[in-house]
Design a protein around this nucleic acid. Structure first.
Length: 589
RNA sequence: GGUUCGGUAGCUCAGCUGGAUAGAGCGUCAUCCUUCUAAGAUGAGGGCCAUUGGUUCGAAUCCAAUCCGAAUCACCA
């Protein structure tokens, strides 16, 4: 049961009984009492002072007394300070919550589990993954885990952008410059190999434009006339016509990229129930355009292109089909939404996509609603901010990106060095060490990217390596390992009896009971940073407790057993919270 | 220009459904390992919460205007 919710309900009830005024429980503001005041929870009275026409002191005294009777055995005392009504909660209440709780009790109760799709990752097959993709992958994975902790069924999907002019750019550069080389010839990961040709394309393109401009052409014209650019466009046409040689090259190069992606996904922990390919979905949506025309949601211009007028919704007119009858991005997405809905029949569908596409998803949802598609109302865009460098945006075509594989490897290396220098894992076998370095390195990286509000852009400075101290993944992993180390010594065979909780013990008990609410909030706001902040605070609180009070050499057996129980619950909660972020916790480090 | 989102400590960020003296981490300085893992703990220092005005018992939080920054407003995906 949730004490805060109970306090709200009883407050509303008591006010109704005392003054005959109806108040919604949600209107009652319950805060944790500031440490400098007596009490555990505080109700802010000002909100009701005016409504009830009572002075804060009088209201506080009457309400406090009523609450004392309404929640016997729970509320033991109250005091009023300047319009704040502070309640003291009984020792027995906190003791009971600890004594009776199993780790699984500290999870949200879900009476109406839903089936939810999370689409994330969505890479392009012309270049390797970079730091921005990592933010996407970690967010997608974490949201899926959070929804699962809430008791929902999750379907993870991915749409691969495997066609289009950008792919052709890598392809033509390969034709021109590779001399038939393959990733295995150059000992390179396939995605990096292909990405290099994407960069080579842009170098060649720039050089050709410069040359044309030097020859007297305007910049604008030169950008259109550069031979390599024209070559890429011709290649796209050939691809669309299904030209055999072009298709072969396309398939071959994409295969290289997928092999590279697989390695990376395996390393960082991303997986999908179903992967959709744009080469197969880019013609979708035709029937929906027909339907839209019949329903008069869309209209046709003289040149046969099809549009929707969203000016009534404060947006623009948007094209949904070209005059040649082909689909645009929007139409594909509408079509894909319909396909996914038919295939998985989910209650909601979360798209993890960067905030540069906010407008697109706003329009997508609106159009689906106007078409009355079953998927429409369940569309949510988990919009996240770009990861920027101190020098500005990352650009793949200019090579100014933080490469995902490089960064992951670097993090694992740093964790190896740190672990070795601390020398606490002498008893580990080589495979165990490797696993530990991965756990810590990836933990640091994932936590770093997930600890901030996804909506906000974030700045990453490659000069300053990601920290292993303070508000970080390794800090929490360390705290977990520390608890496990203690529990290995004490054992977990305990018998709990009554004892008076010390302030630090009570603080831990209170913090533990907040976990389900944190998971629910993170799920509702699609924001893993809420979980990161929570487990950090829990770990910090435990570490203070650890420094202050001994578990093994507690002042009494009752205390020892109580603290072991607290430690078990904290370790389990840290582990669950970290799992919600897609991060493992070691037993020893 | 329209729309949307940001501006909080030297740096990176919490707090924003209005509430008690605005919080963390990093960095700086100082203390704590013969005692359960020092990847830890404790303390110090650091702030006109972009600016101005408004709403009210009370504003970092709400409203308006201004300044600065970003995204978007493609028959690219």
């Amino acid at each position: 049961m949730n004490l805060i919710l109970n306090l709200k309900q009883h407050t509303a009830h008591c006010i109704h009984q005392l003054y005959g005024v109806q108040i919604q429980p949600e209107q009652v503001l319950v805060n944790a009492t500031k440490p400098e005041f007596e009490g555990d929870y505080t109700i802010v009275l000002f909100a009701f002072v005016k409504q009830l026409g009572k002075s804060p002191d009088l209201l506080g005294n009457e309400l406090g007394a009523a609450m004392l009777t309404a929640m016997p055995g729970v509320i033991t005392d109250f005091n009023i300070v300047k319009g704040f009504l502070n309640f003291s909660i009984s020792n027995a209440f906190w003791l009971d919550t600890i004594k009776n709780a199993t780790p699984d009790d500290l999870l949200p109760k879900n009476n109406a589990p839903r089936k939810i799709m999370v689409e994330y990752s969505s890479p392009n097959t012309n270049k390797p993954l970079h730091l921005g993709h990592l933010r996407n992958n970690f967010l997608g994975w974490s949201i899926a885990e959070i929804l699962k902790l809430q008791g929902n069924e999750v379907v993870k999907t991915c749409i691969v952008n495997d066609r289009g002019i950008h792919i052709c750019k890598s392809m033509i550069a390969w034709q021109l410059f590779a001399n038939g080389a393959t990733p295995s010839d150059t000992q390179q990961k396939g995605d990096h190999f292909v990405g290099d040709y994407y960069v080579k394309y842009n170098d060649a393109y720039k050089a050709q434009v410069a040359e044309l401009v030097a020859g007297g052409m305007t910049q604008e014209l030169a950008e259109k006339e550069a031979p390599i650019q024209k070559g890429a466009q011709e290649m796209l046409l050939k691809w669309e016509q299904g030209d055999a040689a072009t298709m072969d090259l396309w398939k071959r190069m994409n295969t290289w990229v997928y092999e590279g992606f697989d390695t990376t996904y395996k390393k960082i922990g991303s997986d999908f129930v179903k992967t959709y390919y744009e080469s197969k979905t880019y013609l979708l949506g035709k029937e929906l355009v027909e339907q839209g025309l019949t329903k008069k949601v869309f209209y046709q211009k003289e040149d046969n292109s099809v549009w929707i007028d969203l000016t009534g919704d404060g947006l623009d007119e948007k094209i949904v089909q070209r005059k040649d009858g082909t689909s645009v991005y929007m139409t594909q997405d509408i079509g894909l939404a319909e396909v996914k809905q038919k295939e998985f029949n989910t209650d909601a569908s979360i798209y993890v996509v960067g905030d540069e596409q906010n407008y697109h998803f706003k329009v997508l949802k609106l159009i689906c609603q106007k078409l009355q598609l079953p998927a429409a109302d369940g569309i949510y865009h988990l919009s996240y901010g770009m990861v920027e460098l101190p020098t500005g945006k990352m650009k793949s075509r200019e090579g100014t990106v933080v490469d995902a594989d490089d960064l992951v490897d670097e993090m694992i290396n740093i964790s190896k060095e740190k672990t070795e220098s601390l020398g606490k894992v002498a008893d580990f076998t080589q495979p165990q060490l490797t696993a530990l370095y991965n756990t810590i390195g990836l933990g640091a990286l994932k936590f770093f990217l997930l600890r901030v509000d996804p909506k906000k852009k974030m700045i990453f400075n490659p000069e300053e390596s990601i920290d292993f101290h303070g508000f970080t993944g390794p800090f929490i992993q360390y705290t977990h390992a520390r608890i496990k180390s203690i529990l290995r010594k004490t054992g977990t065979d305990i018998q709990l009896t009554d004892s008076e909780l010390l302030p630090l013990e009570k603080a831990l008990a209170i913090e533990l009971t907040n976990f389900p609410a944190v998971i629910n909030e993170a799920a509702e706001t699609l924001d893993p940073s809420k979980v990161a902040i929570y487990i950090f605070n829990l770990a910090k609180l435990f570490n203070s407790f650890y420094a202050e009070l001994s578990i093994t050499n507690a002042e009494s057996e009752e205390k020892k057993h109580l603290r072991i129980k607290l430690s078990i619950l904290i370790a389990a909660t840290l582990q669950k919270g970290m799992r919600a972020l897609g991060i493992d916790v070691p037993e020893q480090m």
